[in-house]
Amino acid sequence: MAEAMGLRERKKLQTEMRIYRVAVDLFAERGFDEVSVQQIADAAEVSKMTVFNYFGTKEELVFKPMVEHFSDAARAVRERMPGESAVGAVRRQFLAMVERRDPSIGLHGDPFARRIRAVIMATPVLRERAYVESEKGARELADLLTEETGDPTLALIAAATLATARSALVEEHHRRIDAGESVGEVAADAVERARRAFDLVEKGLKDYAVRA
């Protein structure tokens, strides 16, 4: 991607990533509430205005790079193949992410990435933001299924079920790695665990929202 960018775009991306990494490191060291945007700007050697040009709020200094992943389940359903159910699409996407050890589902050992999670878990306002973003993702999926099926109640139930199953699997990855297991150990049985989870969901949803 960097090769396809011009010099200006590469410099902007480098600046954004420097601000992001500096902010997360400061939050981890001092606490989210104890760090000001001005302190982040000073540490990143940019102006406060530059920080806000890249990140509209202080919370976005944590969430901006990950927000798109709250829509992963909706994306899977939106792009599913003919004859594929909603649960089938979400399962297929999740299994592919397990296979490549996608950081967005917790299968990574990178200290910086785990530092981000630690900051979120230690900060009530960030935990609330994570909950809100998760709910928005589930609502996006529910709205999509409502458009296809015409039944908003069943769409909401299906979306909530799929989102909960997916979140539980991701949380399990984090919990085990936080407890000291290696990424390899967790990934070794993650595919089978995910299959069992989505099979359980499918028993109640297997004939729901099959694309014509």
Rank of each mutant, 00 (worst) to 15 (best):
M1T: 12
M1R: 14
M1I: 12
A2I: 14
A2H: 11
A2W: 10
A2C: 12
G6H: 01
K12A: 15
K12W: 13
L13T: 15
T15M: 12
R18W: 07
R18G: 08
Y20Q: 04
R21I: 13
A23H: 00
D25L: 08
L26Y: 04
E29S: 11
R30C: 05
G31D: 06
F32M: 05
V35Q: 04
V35D: 05
S36Y: 04
S36N: 09
Q39H: 08
Q39T: 13
Q39Y: 06
A41N: 07
D42K: 12
V46R: 00
V46W: 00
K48C: 08
K48P: 02
M49F: 11
M49K: 13
M49P: 10
T50M: 03
N53I: 02
G56P: 09
T57M: 03
T57H: 02
K58E: 09
K58A: 09
K58S: 07
L61A: 08
L61Q: 05
V62M: 06
V62G: 05
K64F: 11
P65H: 03
M66T: 11
V67F: 08
V67C: 05
V67G: 04
E68T: 13
H69W: 14
S71M: 12
D72K: 06
D72T: 06
D72G: 04
A73V: 06
A73N: 08
A74T: 07
A76N: 07
E79G: 10
R80P: 12
E84R: 15
A86T: 14
V87W: 11
V90T: 13
A96V: 02
A96F: 03
A96W: 01
V98A: 03
E99D: 14
R100F: 07
D102M: 12
P103S: 10
S104P: 07
S104W: 14
I105V: 11
H108Y: 13
G109N: 08
I116Q: 10
I120A: 07
A122N: 06
T123P: 00
T123I: 00
V125G: 03
V125H: 04
V125M: 05
R127W: 04
Y131W: 14
E133Y: 15
S134W: 14
G137T: 07
A138L: 09
A138H: 06
E140I: 09
A142T: 06
T146L: 01
E147N: 01
E148L: 04
E148N: 00
E148Q: 07
E148T: 00
T149D: 00
G150D: 00
G150W: 00
T153Q: 08
L156G: 15
L156D: 14
L156C: 10
I157M: 11
A159W: 02
A159F: 03
A160D: 10
T161Q: 04
T161Y: 01
A163G: 09
T164S: 14
R166P: 08
S167L: 11
V170L: 10
E172F: 11
H174M: 09
H174F: 13
I177C: 01
E185S: 11
E185W: 01
A187T: 03
A187S: 11
D189Q: 10
A194Q: 00
A197P: 04
F198W: 01
F198I: 01
D199F: 02
E202L: 02
E202Y: 01
K203E: 13
L205N: 06
L205F: 05
K206F: 14
K206N: 13
A212C: 12
A212M: 14
A212D: 15
